[in-house]
Nucleic acid binder design. Structure first.
Lengths: 333, 333
DNA sequence: GAGATCCTTTACAACGTTGGCGACAACGGT
DNA sequence: ACCGTTGTCGCCAACGTTGTAAAGGATCTC
């Protein structure tokens, strides 16, 4: 069914090694021989057995991307860019869905598919630095600010600054009762913590007091969580004039809840999100958000991995910051 | 760094094969030996080299899922379910993003990662049956109705019936000028063709004439395409009282364009979509849609693949139909 | 107590590929 | 014509794993 080097070699009347040389672009093969081998390759539709090649070379050409959930638009968009960036290096991407739980994430970090992958790009939710210390697995690049000063390479955005900019933007509209949605009480929610810090910093700069009733924690960052948080906030009698959600999905849920409560956006309540997912560009109203440069994040991560695979496995961990941009739209017009 | 069976064997004072036997749960190993080996395994944190195992056994435990774009919510949600279903079989999923182009799809079908995968679940956009005839690769399961009567297993939903039900639902609201958005003029757009057929059938049943000015073709099924189609429709002076979009993303774009045109949904124009993506449950208004059972689709596909891998590679191709459900929401209330 | 039967462990080969190196041919310079 | 160099090609071994089959030991049966 499937042919091996040996079959091609027999057909071309050369040795297995010569076929291998042709396949791998080795220089010193006589044009006539090369032509004969190439004809045989085409006739038999030869495709290398990557497992065997990998066993021999120690490389698979496959990297893994581990994300909490694929159907969260931010991760889906990120995955798209990672797959594209990996393709530039000739790599295939194996995607792992961790669910965000600590145990599954530890398993993923410890080695998805083990020797099947050359490297791992990992966007953890609940993993701590401790979980990563004693890993002797493949090179890893972490995405997002969840694990501080871990032993691995890291691509982040400046969450604090971004959150401060959004909040300042809302304050600039004359809003003073600004809710923050998406805080995470767990110690692992580093992203949430940083965004909350930016929010607080902006309030302080503007001389606005911090009101904990305006800060809503959510178990996750899905639309339903955002809607529930807003419903709860409004039901408790707290009436914000702006809402900063820590993700766009939260914000879209919030928009929905505000709509149900009969409040107009942005007239009554301005709303801003974070992530710049495509939904926010078509929602009613369109969503003001922080746009992290996802393509850049993906490319930086892949390039970091390429560097590790290229040799310097023992260089100290690097941390790169991708740019972001505040993108005002109708929800804060 | 990474340890092999040989290292474990030396530490435990047994042969390589005995360690292999322990790892693979072979019955006849003396408890004392087993304990010693297991201790060594744990100490060295042994992890099998899957490439070597695969080379020996001819199986990788990895299947591929090929979709046009990961950041189209329908595919992202589908991917989520496929990954989950595959996990039940102990499989990892390698995701390939084809972009929907014919050439990339042919390459994908011809063998992603080649010997690295045991099987392929494939959701093609522009591939034709011809492209699949001479494939001698790994077992494949096709998703969606794009390739009719191809040589491979197939999981579909009843597009015609579903589209007819949606259209009938709109007619039931007393609407008679019902636009259809998402037609695809290319011969490959089988999904679009079937949904259009269902739309037409419902009109005929209700005695409503087919008006081609109400049928909008779109290059793709993204939000932007839906918005552009509606803008174009309205600009041309055609004024529908309902819109059936062939996907939810199209519908969300349509909602946006209607909003911009100052038309109220559903009062002035009712809108229905197709796919039941999460966005539609939180949009303003929430979106009436056809909900294909994505979890079932994923599980059927994975099970079909499991069947092929389990032995009957030469059984005739099977076609399974997953259920769908019309889900009325605010946009047609 | 001898042979048969079982359990436990091991040696060997093979999966398909490529790196190292050696064999041989062709070519250039003297 | 001879030697050295360069180019071309093939043999062998190895990557880490598991299937086969056989060896070695223990236990059982008569």
């Amino acid at each position: 069914m499937r042919h091996r080097l040996k079959d091609v070699a027999e057909r071309a009347g050369v040795s297995v090694k010569t076929v291998s040389n042709v396949v791998n672009g080795y220089q010193h093969v006589r044009p006539a021989t090369r032509a004969r081998v190439e004809a045989a390759l085409a006739e038999l539709r030869y495709r290398p057995n990557l497992s065997a090649r990998n066993l021999r070379k120690g490389r698979t050409g496959v990297i893994a991307l581990a994300v909490p959930e694929l159907d969260i638009p931010y991760f889906a968009e990120l995955a798209r860019h990672v797959v594209a960036a990996a393709a530039d290096h000739g790599w295939t991407v194996l995607i792992d869905q961790t669910g965000g739980g600590r145990e599954r994430e530890r398993v993923a970090a410890a080695g998805i598919g083990d020797h099947l992958i050359d490297g791992l790009i990992f966007s953890p939710l609940s993993l701590t630095a401790d979980d990563l210390t004693d890993l002797d697995g493949v090179p890893m690049v972490l995405l997002g600010e969840r694990v501080d000063h871990g032993p691995a390479d890291h691509v982040v955005i400046d969450n604090v600054t971004a959150a401060r900019e959004v909040t300042a933007h809302l304050i600039g509209l004359g809003r003073h009762r600004i809710a923050a949605v998406g805080a995470q009480p767990t110690p692992e929610g580093a992203g949430a913590r940083l965004r909350l810090a930016g929010y607080t910093a902006a309030l302080t700069e503007a001389g606005i007091g911090y009101d904990e009733r305006l800060v809503a924690a959510t178990p996750a960052w899905r639309r339903a969580d955002g809607a529930a948080a807003l419903r709860h906030l409004l039901a408790s009698g707290t009436r914000p004039d702006a809402v900063f959600c820590f993700s766009d999905t939260l914000a879209l849920g919030a928009l929905r809840a505000l709509h149900e409560a009969g409040l107009r956006v942005p007239t009554d309540v301005a709303v801003a999100g974070f992530d710049d997912i495509e939904d926010g560009r078509f929602s009613v109203p369109t969503l003001t958000t922080v746009a992290p440069d996802k393509e850049r994040i993906a490319r930086l991560a892949v390039d970091l991995l390429a560097g590790r695979l290229g040799g310097d496995r023992d260089a100290p961990p690097r941390e790169l910051t991708a740019p972001h941009r505040l993108t005002p739209r109708e929800s804060t017009a």
